[in-house]
Design a protein around this nucleic acid. Structure first.
Lengths: 346, 346
DNA sequence: TGTTAGCACTCATCCCCTTCGAGTGCTAAC
DNA sequence: GTTAGCACTCGAAGGGGATGAGTGCTAACA
């Protein structure tokens, strides 16, 4: 049996597989030949479907929980479904409306927008949503202000040229006076203006050094720890408890390990970071290299501001996820968020 | 039968009740007379215990799931237990050690300390923990810096005299230039220095007004929205999924409503705010005026800095909670956190 | 040669029934 | 007042059918 790539199933098998996946996504119950025969309007008898399903099982697209149950899709099936089969759903007018109404464009702070986005995403999909805040590494700086907090520590407020801000507590030499910090702020703001922080450290720092004289080392340390702080990305996760609505997580220990993993956030953060350059990515089941997520799928999209990718967001749910709907929602949300941010941060 | 206040059970009933509550807290299973007779070294036969248990049931301290099961404590019993019966446990050396090792005193940022505290609290108790960040209303200001972000918006960084910081994005008139903001920052910092923000708005504002002339209204608006932002208290919640370890939450829908409530955070925030003046408070079951929390108990303590209460933290778990241990841990953590903050923010 | 009806077979689920045992409440004796 | 004894209760656990959804195979059909 020659397997010239999994996409080369004949049309009929494709349609049967689609019917099975669609049904299983809705019901979470193994799908039998009779059901397929009735639901897919192909005019084939259950017996014929059975033969095809048997083939599909042999090819690894279907699995049988036990002899006399129906079939459930394998990961391979979901992969094929996502890549080649599924109807790429359009949002209904109601759904688009809902998003428009709940993403309040009057909000004027980036963090608030991020939180709203996560909330809407989770409410609409009924899965767990996550939204990464815009990444600084891609943005150009406008200003860095050092504000004295106590002897030996200061808060650095970094503002980008598109109006996103972030703060970092840093240590400063105790000898530095508030006025010194103000001077340094002005100096590094003048020098860094328009650069990205990462490159600034290398190319601009030497120039700064020559001007600050004895405080050169201190300034260098400060910039380094600012850069460190800024490279930490915040992720807003909402709706983790939605997972309990799905029967595959009715087992408390499975739910527990999912929720613990989500609460720690480290894996999700990694996925979002990794996905920050592909427009849309889908990880199905064990494609997540994390055993706690082996029964989950994670779908991410990037969002932009000023034509550049500056962050990503996504949805986590059971592998039996409504891929079409979620992908449609994510696409729409991505462009909504990009619009809002572009306006917000000009 | 005269009931002169629930605390007036005779000694023997108290000890029996204690044995039952202790056992039930450990096992989550109804406790029978034989068990009590064996475990409590009172040298009484099961039959005698049965008579007492019957009385305790009549008095409302015990409940019977069904005729042939043992008894479980009622809320009233937990209340009595907490108020009058339980041994106020001491931490073991191991536990105290664990806290010392994991509350890193070298951390120099308040938010980080809060997060660590919540993590340790949840890890040690295996319940859900929550820690409120220090409240600004009680603290005196040292500095307010306005940093231009984009036309029409600025970030206000507020620093208290004990080194706690918080930021707020605010709108500013588009006509204001960066230099104006700098001037205003210096002015309000000079005037507000040492005052609490709330009182400052009323007493200091008039003075400021006279000095800023035409910008008086703008400054007033700015201060008002800063005050608004600062009065929002952040709560760090950790370990929500721990609840799934307890059999009383093996029912998915119960777990779901608990987790949803916790995720929203609004009730917990309310509890922490309400509890901010009593050293330790315990809410058992329906004493929480929130139906989703009717099977939970919430214990809170306050923490201090510079001798003043500036925040609170707590633990949420099933009513069958290890009150003695949790209260001991909270007491210890409260003083640890107070110490750390007092040092950190001098 | 692909499609279909027919049929025996499998196996999880449901329901009923029994058994088991932990626990109670009552009574009578110590 | 305390305790042993005993009948009674009732949930939990376990053991069959009965049910029915679904399969795979075979033989007939177009």
């Amino acid at each position: 049996m020659s397997d010239k790539g999994s996409s080369l199933l004949d049309i009929r098998k494709m349609r049967i597989l689609q019917a099975i996946v669609d049904d299983y996504i809705m019901t979470a119950a193994p799908v039998g030949s009779r059901t397929v025969s009735k639901r897919s309007d192909m005019g084939l008898s259950p017996a014929t479907i059975r033969n095809e399903m048997s083939d599909l099982t042999e090819l690894g697209f279907l699995e049988q929980p036990h002899t006399s149950a129906g079939r459930i899709p394998s990961e391979k099936a979901y992969r094929l479904y996502v890549n080649h089969i599924m109807d790429s759903a359009k949002l209904t007018d109601d759904e688009a409306d809902y998003i428009k109404r709940h993403l309040d464009t009057r909000v004027h702070e980036v963090g608030e927008v991020i939180r709203q986005t996560a909330k809407v995403l989770s409410d609409m999909t009924n899965y767990t949503s996550m939204v990464m805040s815009p990444q600084f590494s891609a943005m150009r700086l406008k200003r860095i202000s050092l504000i004295p907090v106590s002897e030996g520590s200061a808060m650095a407020v970094v503002v980008t040229n598109n109006g996103v801000t972030k703060n970092a507590m840093i240590r400063v030499p105790e000898t530095l006076q508030p006025e010194d910090l103000e001077k340094i702020s002005k100096l590094i703001t003048a020098k860094l203006d328009g650069h990205k922080l990462g490159e600034a450290i290398n190319s601009v720092l030497p120039m700064i050094k020559s001007e600050v004289g004895e405080q050169a080392d201190a300034v260098c340390d400060m910039l380094t720890s600012i850069e460190e702080s800024l490279s930490e990305t915040d992720v807003e996760v909402v709706g983790a408890s939605n997972i309990l609505d799905y029967p595959e997580y009715s087992d408390a220990s499975k739910a527990r390990s999912f929720l613990t993993e989500v609460e720690s956030g480290s894996y999700l953060q990694k996925v979002l970071s990794d996905a920050s350059d592909v427009e849309m990515s889908v990880r199905i089941g064990t494609e997540n290299d994390n055993p706690d997520m082996k029964d989950c799928s994670v779908i991410t999209v990037t969002y932009k501001a000023g034509g550049e990718n500056i962050g990503s967001m996504g949805v986590v749910g059971p592998t039996r996820m409504d891929y079409g709907k979620v992908m449609a929602i994510l696409r729409y949300m991505s462009s909504s968020l990009s619009d809002i941010l572009s306006k917000l941060i000009k």
